[in-house]
Write a protein that binds this DNA or RNA. Structure first.
Length: 800
RNA sequence: GCCGGAGUGGCGAAAUUGGCAGACGCCCGGGACUUAAAAUCCCGUGGGACCCAAAUCCCGUACCGGUUCGAGCCCGGUUUCCGGCACCA
């Protein structure tokens, strides 16, 4: 058969669509399989080869499962709200909706040309009102359940994008969108209380099948620690200064306290603090520092000792000095610490610099050189005389603190609440109303969706206001509660909102009475397999697990966790081995490859490149190699005969069925394709092969190269589409050879091979080696003192 | 610094988890076909020792050491690279 991919590919894409082969059935007796890939943000640049790799992986699994009789849901949609479209809109003065629609069409066209088996009848787009109606609905439910709150706090603010960013969006002190330095600004912010779900998000990890690296990243990000809150007193006042510590067993070693420069309690006692001017100067200095300076240049500790104010250690009544220093953060714990220089390296460095006492209270290490942060017996206090020596000292101290009423057990998380508003246009309007009488009131559910109004100017206001604030008809409204004059919230939701629940909407995308029908949810959830990029593992994965768990808690969904299994794909690097980027000029356009070699080649190549989870550079020559492979496949029909072959091909065929099936499930696509290449090489050597051989081969290859294989399948006279044909089964007995070639070793060194019956015992194997005549050099004049035989693998003879 | 992962030919990589290291593909070399080139097909291809070949032997999975009949895989140490977190009390 001639391999004319330019005709074949569009032909089958149309046939699949017309026949609805990839459409999932809602009412089905078949076992379900919900495969999910991260829906893209429809950027103007179109699809990236990275998308192709991410989608091809589960497309292959979906094809196979479909052939195995599963009812497969493999949907696709678009995460279409977001900054790039808005920035482009500002530049070109085009409505983001227009741009987005254009980009979505472009993406869809590209995806169809690659032949992905998506169920397009379920397409969604997060920026359409019938979708974001439900994003707003879920938000209102959270508001109702007290998970939405407003607070004036120091926030991460990007001066370039003019928006407040969540912690997750400003990792490393850089804006996730434009990479400029993020600054800290006091602002009114809407928060989603994700911290209330910290423990549930941690526990949920136990019941899902995620790679350890992903679980570990989530655990690190949540950053749970257990410790104690302890009250210190400000000397000469009734003021309790609460601190958080994970090492309350070191309380006797406290020689000073440190407060974050922004700590509000300071202002209460500015009359007592004689060097207040110095404090204010230090505060100003810290506020100027960028995140980078505060976290990266950590070698040198700075701080100011408060003059006129000191604290009292509650366990021994000692008076200790108080410092303010920026190594203590306002955003973690209580913003104040007890400093134990003998047992904390940061406190140690600070104490050395400022000449504070260092008192060792835990045995171990050498505190002349550095802090000892390990565990150990308590020393230099009579604490343990009062308490059971056998008891863990932290537990003993906690008990003591409780009895005295000066402290209690506590838990802290590094994860912060989710800053949920953006002063931007192209996002879901936050459905809240500010009423002077009733306070903040939710928009009534029946008024959803709260539609994003048309504006003429998308530029954010210079005062940090959303463009929506300039539209009086939107802003001015009646309070849903009292009917009086009120004003709408004008901020919009962040990029991550729409993607936090999209997998639920795919289940029932056109429902206008609920985000999805409960029975359908019950049938399809959870997502059986979710694949995506490693870059979404802390943000999107955590956010969507949080939303889903909330919906579970209020009885809207039936599973605690949204994704039963998560996997990830490795990056495709440019041909030069660097990350692909426009500026480096090493970007590969997938559609160029489709044009030149065909979609089947592209799909096969991205999966054959190497380990699916590892980063690998693009190589044009290797693409040609995959193309050559498919050419040879197309030629298979020419060497086909009616004759039945000897057992050799049959055995290899069954082994290959097993291997390809197993490898696809393990995402070892590269070795699955390699096995098919080996098989076709053997076909070539055999000279003649049967129709059955070819048909089996075609079925195995079809998930990777669906167009070519459908065409061949049809040309072989089959009336049913290949995509609807059962996946081949293998006969275990036929995967086992009657004879095997085993390695022969002498004293552990390989010296050759010998062919023996597969069921040969040790004596038979040794006899075969002796009789082969190949090992006389090793055997003559020697005695065998030991024989190690691993059937089917190796015979190791120890000779003297 | 802490957590996770990796280091195998000229290149991308395999190795059924302790059993013949380098499957499969690329590159490269040789040959066939062709007026020629491209395409295609066949053969070879980790390094080294002997003039060629066969045969044989030696070396070889980042480095040093260990366990074992046997180590790419297990253990101890070193080192480099990638990803994540990072003054988190």
């Amino acid at each position: 058969m001639k391999y004319d991919f330019k005709t074949i590919e569009p032909k089958w894409q149309k046939k699949w669509e017309d026949a609805g082969v990839f459409r999932a059935e809602d009412e089905s007796k078949k076992p379900k399989f919900y495969a999910l890939v991260e829906f893209p943000y429809p950027s103007g640049a179109g699809m990236h080869v990275g998308h192709i790799k991410a989608y091809s992986g589960l497309d292959v699994v979906s094809h196979k499962r479909r052939m195995q009789g599963y009812n497969v849901l493999f949907p696709m949609g678009f995460d279409s709200f977001g900054l790039p479209a808005e920035n482009y809109a500002i530049k070109t003065n085009t409505h983001p909706h227009v741009i987005t629609t254009k980009n979505v069409d472009h993406f869809k066209d590209q995806m169809k040309k690659i032949g992905f088996g998506f169920d397009w009848s379920r397409e969604i787009s997060t920026s359409l009102p019938d979708y974001y109606k439900w994003t707003q609905w879920i938000f209102l439910k959270m508001f109702e359940h007290g998970l939405v709150f407003r607070a004036k706090t120091l926030v991460n603010y990007c001066p370039h994008c003019k928006v407040v960013l969540s912690n997750e969006d400003s990792q490393g002190g850089k804006c996730d969108v434009c990479h400029s330095d993020v600054i800290q600004l006091p602002k009114d912010v809407w928060y989603l209380k994700i911290t209330a779900y910290a423990d549930k998000l941690l526990e949920g990890l136990d019941e899902v099948d995620y790679p350890d690296s992903i679980k570990q990243q989530q655990i690190t990000w949540i950053g749970r620690s257990t410790g104690a809150f302890v009250d210190f007193t400000l000397d000469g006042t009734d003021e309790k200064l609460e601190i958080y510590t994970t090492r309350c067993d070191t309380l006797y070693g406290v020689t000073f306290m440190v407060m974050a420069p922004e700590h509000p309690t300071l202002d209460k006692y500015k009359d007592k603090i004689k060097n207040w001017a110095e404090v204010e100067a230090y505060r100003a200095e810290c506020a100027k520092k960028t995140e980078f300076e505060r976290t990266q240049l950590v070698k040198d500790k700075t701080g100011v000792k408060l003059d006129g104010l000191c604290a009292v250690n509650p366990v021994n009544g000692k008076k200790i000095p108080i410092f303010i220093a920026d190594y203590v953060m306002m955003g973690y714990g209580t913003g104040a610490i007890m400093a134990v220089p003998a047992h904390d390296q940061r406190d140690y460095e600070f104490a050395k610099k400022f000449g504070v006492d260092i008192i060792q209270v835990i045995e171990g290490g050498d505190i002349e050189k550095e802090a000892y942060t390990g565990d150990g017996r308590m020393i230099n206090s009579d604490f343990l005389n009062q308490y059971d020596n056998k008891k863990d000292s932290i537990a003993a101290m906690l008990e003591y603190l409780g009895e005295k009423g000066i402290g209690k057990k506590g838990v802290q998380y590094k994860m912060k609440d989710w800053a949920f508003n953006r002063q931007r246009y192209w996002g879901e309007p936050i459905p809240l109303v500010h009423c002077p009488k009733c306070g903040t009131v939710g928009v009534p559910y029946e008024e959803l969706p709260l539609v994003l109004p048309e504006v003429e100017n998308f530029e954010p206001g210079t005062d940090g206001q959303s463009p929506l604030a300039r539209i009086d008809s939107f802003v001015n409204c009646k309070c849903p509660k009292c009917g009086g004059d009120a004003k709408r919230e004008t901020d919009t939701m962040p990029q991550w909102a729409g993607s936090s629940w999209y997998f639920l909407r795919f289940i029932d995308p056109h429902n206008d009475r609920a985000f999805a029908d409960p029975d359908k949810l019950k049938y399809w959830m959870p997502v059986d397999w979710y694949n995506g990029g490693m870059e979404h593992v802390t943000r999107h994965l955590l956010y969507s697990r949080f939303w889903h768990r909330f919906l579970y808690d209020i009885g809207e969904v039936n599973t605690k966790e949204p994704y039963a299994k998560r996997s990830y794909q490795g990056l495709i690097l440019g041909p030069d081995g660097n990350k692909m980027s426009k500026s480096a000029g090493n970007v590969i356009d997938p559609l160029d490859i489709v044009e030149k070699y065909g979609a089947d080649t592209l799909r096969t190549y991205v999966l054959f490149m190497g380990d699916y989870t590892a980063a690998a550079p693009w190589n044009d020559d290797s693409v040609k190699g995959c193309r050559r492979f498919l050419e040879r496949v197309a030629g298979l029909t020419d060497i086909m005969t009616a004759k039945t072959e000897d057992g050799k091909i049959e055995s290899l065929l069954h082994k290959t069925i097993k291997k390809v099936g197993d490898d696809i499930e393990a995402m070892k696509y590269n070795t699955a394709i390699a096995a098919l290449m080996t098989l076709i090489n053997e076909f070539g050597k055999a000279g003649s092969i049967t129709k059955f051989d070819v048909e089996t081969f075609i079925k195995l290859l079809s998930p990777f190269a669906p167009h070519l294989t459908e065409e061949m399948w049809e040309s072989l006279g089959n009336k049913t589409m290949l995509a609807k044909t059962p996946w081949p089964e293998y006969d275990e007995a036929k995967t086992v050879d009657s004879t095997v070639e085993i390695g022969v070793q002498f004293n552990g060194k390989s010296r050759g091979t010998v062919v023996i019956p597969a069921d040969a015992d040790k004596d038979a194997a040794v006899a075969a080696v002796k009789e082969s005549g190949k090992f006389t050099a090793q055997l003559d004049g020697k005695t065998i003192v030991k024989e190690i035989y691993v059937p089917g693998r190796i015979l190791n003879l120890i000779v003297k």
